[in-house]
Design a protein around this nucleic acid. Structure first.
Lengths: 345, 345
DNA sequence: GCGCCTTGTGTGACCGGTCACATTCATGCG
DNA sequence: CGCATGAATGTGACCGGTCACACAAGGCGC
């Protein structure tokens, strides 16, 4: 134990070496578990390490060895429930592997800002995880220079990506399909959709899952209402839909939108689920406690984050236990906000 | 522009030096803006930098200079709205100052786990910000070795801390006071309080603000209901309070708790605000869209995060523009969930 | 014409590790 | 007994920057 009150410079391997009466290289061997060190020597070194409170300097390690045991997560927002959960999952897995986690927020989707942020992440060394559900994220994923270890957390890709693309996703197309089918099975003639901003393609995975369910059921296919990410967007969309008497079921791109829609329906005097059924997406923690509680599809964001890290970890270290396709399965959660359509529909 | 397709090793200052026909030290002078470099030389070096796409290696910089231009944020959770907003604020300010942001999650409040996480943060070099609203955070703040640059984001301290304590806080005592006074001014005989887990002291700042308002009004002081952080805890507490007919006003430690309380009151058949008024804390984004929309106190978490970084920045670089006491002012937001008590009370 | 200060530039050591190679000594085997 | 082999350890260079100092050239005062 170092009992001197001073905040002295931390001990280096050379300090340990002199204390143990060996060369610095032997110390290096001990801390790296190299086999050919005589047990008695190892013991002496370990004692010196303990006594001096030695801790290996991460910066020096990174500089000398090239590997930095760090991940930088690039995201458009830390506040959004889904994003925050993914981040939490990444951090959890990274911590278990003793990796450091960095974070960069893509404040604007503007090209210059995004590439600047990607550069910073690249400079930090280590791997990169990009949360690419929105335009900023997609742009960032595209801006990562080739050759850098990167994993994207993306929407369900249109076509199964070629084998070893370093992407993870939840099956949100399937999720949208399930939610839509659920509403249809209750007897609704069709289901309207309030969409989150699509990442890049005209139709997002969620949109196409919804569409597929409608088509299979032979239901009419209303135009999706483009909205934003937050409850305010859902509110605006909801007011519009509320004016249309024929609307009896609404699927929302996420739970925040659904919240806004519920509010708009309430303000418009349309009861849920009596006159209109509403379903959300994500199963945010508050959704179960709304009045009416929200029917939604639960996605395992934390698990998604863990998978993303696992994939990156495999890329960074050849010990690659890269699970082939870490797709987690969405789960429909039926609550109060969905029910049969009113009689006469 | 480097047009070779290869992902070659990035250029170092020595590469730039040879390309420009100067010594590496001159390159270092140029990138650091040292004055005594002949303009013509500077120009040549800058051209070489541009041509080779040189970017200064952050790791080497950190190792050589000791300063690492990085902050690690320690938090118990990334998902919670308040915490996530603080993080976002820190990141924003850090990015503006070209600092890197790291994150560590304190998964358990257990001593060993917390100190391990603090160690990791310390090893990363740079500064540390600890979000210390909960037991895990408080413990982490305490576990940071003396001499390390650290800033705590804390509850309103019981006594004004001695001058230059590196802490930031929002005035949540004042906020609780405001919310409670608001409810009393509507005519409620008293206000019940559903508390978030206190960080460490018996009574949190929020609790004491609430208590102060009651005392000043000469209102009876019911025992606060201890709860958790999430809506589930609020729900449980709400069910309990709903059974007591005399309860007409409830203040909740945060908006998530309030959500649970609203739900519990609904399930118990007590109308809001007709029979019971409810107020929350934080003004989370969804609170405005609940039915009824939630009366709450808005706290500027993002600004709090920015202040935390500014303070840390001041500690790390002697250029210290350390704003004396970055306390932001809470703002009461009155919405539908609060109103006068029912007649007869 | 000499010394002195200032400006511009280069050299060597260092931060704290790792890596490639050299060296020493004990063993096994023909 | 001589030599190849392998275990245990040490030496020097290197990663990519910074820092302290040395040194050359030019301007100025006297």
């Amino acid at each position: 134990m170092n009992v001197t009150g001073h905040t002295r410079r931390p001990a280096s391997i050379r300090d340990v070496a002199t204390a143990a009466g060996v060369s610095y290289q032997t110390v290096s061997r001990v801390i790296n578990g190299h086999p050919s060190v005589r047990p008695s020597t190892r013991e002496r070194v370990l004692a010196a390490i303990e006594e001096l409170g030695f801790r290996r300097n991460a910066t020096a390690l990174a500089l000398a060895s090239g590997r930095s045991r760090a991940v930088t997560v690039l995201t458009a927002n830390t506040t959004h429930y889904g994003y925050a959960s993914i981040l939490q999952g990444i951090e959890e897995a990274a911590r278990a592997a003793s990796y450091a986690v960095g974070i960069g927020v893509l404040e604007s989707a503007e090209d210059a800002a995004v590439t600047a942020e990607v550069q910073r992440a690249a400079d930090a060394g280590g791997g990169i995880v990009v949360i690419a559900y929105d335009p900023a994220g997609v742009r960032a994923l595209g801006a990562v220079p080739a050759g850098l270890p990167v994993v994207g957390v993306v929407e369900t890709p249109a076509s199964p990506p070629g084998g070893d693309r370093p992407w993870v996703w939840t099956d949100d197309r399937e999720a949208a399909y399930q939610a839509t089918s659920h509403l249809l099975s209750l007897g609704h003639e069709t289901v309207h959709y309030v969409a989150i901003p699509s990442s890049t393609r005209r139709t997002s995975a969620r949109t196409s899952g919804w569409r597929q369910a409608l088509q299979e059921a032979g239901a009419p296919e209303p135009r999706p209402v483009q909205s934003s990410w937050g409850p305010a967007g859902g509110h605006a969309a909801g007011l519009k839909l509320a004016r249309d008497e024929s609307v009896t079921a609404i699927l929302c791109g996420n739970d925040d939108l659904a919240l806004g829609v519920l509010r708009a329906l309430h303000e418009s005097g349309r009861s849920v689920p009596g006159e209109v059924s509403v379903a959300g997406f994500d199963d945010a923690p508050h959704s179960a406690f709304l009045t009416p509680s929200l029917t939604t599809v639960r996605l395992d964001f934390t698990g998604l984050g863990r998978s993303a890290f696992a994939l990156l970890h495999g890329v960074l270290e050849e010990s690659a236990p890269v699970a082939p396709h870490p797709v987690s399965v969405p789960e429909l959660v039926v609550r109060e906000s969905s029910g049969p359509p009113p009689a006469g529909h």
